[in-house]
Amino acid sequence: MGTIALGVRDNVAARFWGSTNGKKAVMAVTGLILFGFVMGHMLGNLQIFEGPVAFNDYAKFLRSVPLGLWLARIVLLTSVVLHVTASVQLVLRKRRARPVAYASKESIASTYASRTMYWSGPIILAFVIYHLLQFTFGVTGVPDYQEGEVYRNVVSGFGQPAIAIWYIVSMLLLCLHLRHGVWSMFQTLGVNHPRYTPILRHGATLFAVVVAIGFISIPVSVLFGWVS
């Protein structure tokens, strides 16, 4: 059989990335990595309820293994870059794929979360950048930022209602994003079975809600003075 590869790249990896299916596979794998991080980050953060000493010690512990820290940072940053690049390219492709819009178009079966991935994603990205500037670099959002005084920084950061609300809204969007993303990555990687897919869908919703509640509990506790 001859090779008639019209407009298809010869390099196998480039061709994989060049196809929408390949891009989605990359998004699924990077999404899984980011989901794992979000899960771990949420669980770690909950130690704030054990008081300032335990929480600051946890933060110190994370920084005590620079190699591990930088490895994690590199993996996460690479994942974010790939995830975002693929999604931007897919949005551009989607625009080209339907140049003339419908006069009327109904959604009859899809979830709100699935249709708003292209909105929730960029807002979460903006939030993550702000979040890093706020708590990692201390550039903004914490009036009296002190390096290493993690507990104090969190309390004084979330003491400002506007910032706490921005955080809560972002976490609700993260919840939506995960609700679709976490089951969708299985579908993208080829896992679908009438017996397991409903479990995956429900499991995704459960995990999304648990992650959101876990994160949101912190600013809410600060606002109500339960953590101070």
Partner: peptide
């Protein structure tokens, strides 16, 4: 078939599920 579908300029699947409903 995947290469051809991509070549034709269809969009990428984001697992939304409107297709199977209609």
């Amino acid at each position: 078939m995947v290469a051809q579908a991509n070549l034709e300029g269809f969009g990428g699947c984001t697992n939304i599920g409107e297709c199977t409903a209609v």
